[in-house]
C-alpha cells in the first residue's frame, strides 16, 4: 500500500514540478521538440524513399521465352520448376498469341507486319516476379539453365545498377534516421541532466529527511517522462498536418506518377507513435540516470 501511495504521490509531484520549474521544463521541452521534428522529417522522407524503391523493384520482371518446339507438358513442367526457385514470387504465362494481339494493338505498322506473316513469329513466355530484386541476376541465370528456355531477360546492366543504387539509398536513409535518433537521445539526456543538476540540493534534502532512493527517484523519473511526452506534442502536430498538407498539395506523388507518396493514414499515426515513444523513453531514462548520480547508491 505504502509503495502505491509513494507512486501516486510521485506522479502528482512530477506533474506539479513541471510547472513549478517552468524555465527548466521549457528548455527541456524545446530541445525535445526541435530534435523530434528533425527525427520526424527524417522518418517521413526515408520511409517514402524506401516505399518508392520497393515499388520500383517490384515492377522488375524476368521475361522467360520458351523454345518454339516446347510442348504444353514441357511448358507446364518449366512453370513448376521456376515456381520452386526460392526467390520467385509469381509466374505468369503469356502465349505468343497474346503477345501478337498486344503488339498489333500497339502500333499500326506492327499490326500490318504481323498480319502479313502466315505464322506467328513470336514466342510463348513467362513473366517472373521475384521476391528480392538483389538476386534478380542469379534467379535469371538459374532459369536460363533450364531446358526449353531460349532466353531469360530482365534488362541486365541498367537494372543491376538501379538495384544497387536503390540499395545504397535505403541504407543511407536508415543510417541517417538512426544517427538522428541517437543525437536526439543525447541532446534530451543532456538537457534533463542539467535540469536535475540544478536541483541536486533538492535531492540532498530528500535524503536528509529520510526518503528512500525509490521515493526520491520516482518523481524525477516521472518528470522526465512528462517532459518527453510534452516535447513530442508539437512534432506530432507538425508531422500529421505537415504530411497531410504536403500530400494533398503534391496530389500524392512527386515528379511523376511513378514516385507515389505513402498514403497519410495510418502512416502519420505510426510516425507519431514513434515520436512519443522516443520522447518518453529518452526522458524517462535520462532523468533516471541523472538522479542516480546524486544518490549515494
Amino acid at each position: 500500500m505504502k509503495a502505491i501511495r509513494v507512486f501516486v504521490r510521485s506522479f502528482k509531484e512530477a506533474f506539479k514540478s513541471v510547472f513549478r520549474n517552468f524555465s527548466l521544463s521549457a528548455a527541456s521541452v524545446a530541445c525535445t521538440t526541435i530534435t523530434l521534428i528533425l527525427v520526424s522529417i527524417a522518418i517521413l522522407v526515408s520511409y517514402n524513399i524506401k516505399n518508392v524503391t520497393e515499388k520500383l523493384e517490384n515492377e522488375l520482371t524476368i521475361v522467360v521465352y520458351l523454345e518454339r518446339e516446347a510442348t504444353k507438358d514441357q511448358a507446364e513442367n518449366l512453370k513448376k520448376t521456376i515456381e520452386n526457385i526460392p526467390n520467385v514470387e509469381k509466374v505468369t504465362y503469356k502465349s505468343k498469341d497474346e503477345w501478337k494481339f498486344e503488339m498489333q494493338n500497339y502500333s499500326s505498322t506492327l499490326n500490318s507486319t504481323l498480319s502479313y506473316l502466315k505464322e506467328n513469329p513470336l514466342l510463348d513466355s513467362y513473366a517472373v516476379k521475384v521476391k528480392d530484386a538483389k538476386y534478380l541476376r542469379k534467379t535469371a541465370d538459374t532459369i536460363k539453365e533450364q531446358e526449353i528456355v531460349r532466353s531469360a531477360e530482365y534488362g541486365e546492366g541498367t537494372v543491376d545498377k538501379l538495384v544497387s543504387v536503390f540499395d545504397l539509398i535505403k541504407r543511407v536513409t536508415v543510417v541517417i534516421v538512426i544517427a538522428l535518433v541517437l543525437v536526439t537521445a543525447f541532446l534530451i539526456n543532456n538537457t534533463i541532466k542539467i535540469a536535475i543538476f540544478s536541483r541536486r540540493s533538492e535531492i540532498e534534502i530528500m535524503r536528509f529527511v529520510g526518503s528512500s532512493n525509490y521515493a526520491i527517484k520516482l518523481p524525477f523519473v516521472f518528470e522526465g517522462l512528462f517532459l518527453g511526452i510534452i516535447g513530442s506534442i508539437i512534432p506530432i502536430i507538425v508531422t500529421i498536418y505537415g504530411y497531410l498538407i504536403a500530400y494533398s498539395k503534391l496530389n500524392g506523388h512527386i515528379f511523376s506518377r511513378m514516385i507515389e507518396l505513402v498514403k497519410p493514414f495510418s502512416f502519420v499515426l505510426y510516425v507519431s507513435l514513434i515520436l512519443v515513444t522516443i520522447g518518453a523513453v529518452v526522458g524517462f531514462f535520462s532523468s533516471y540516470r541523472a538522479v542516480r548520480k546524486y544518490l549515494k547508491v
Binding site: 505504502k2 502505491i4 509513494v6 520549474n21 533538492e202
Partner: peptide
Amino acid sequence: RLLPKQTVYENVAFPLSSNG
C-alpha cells in the same frame, strides 16, 4: 535547506508523504 518550490505545508509534510 527547505524545498524552494514547495509551500510550508508541503515542506513539513515531505518526510511523511515521501514515506507513503
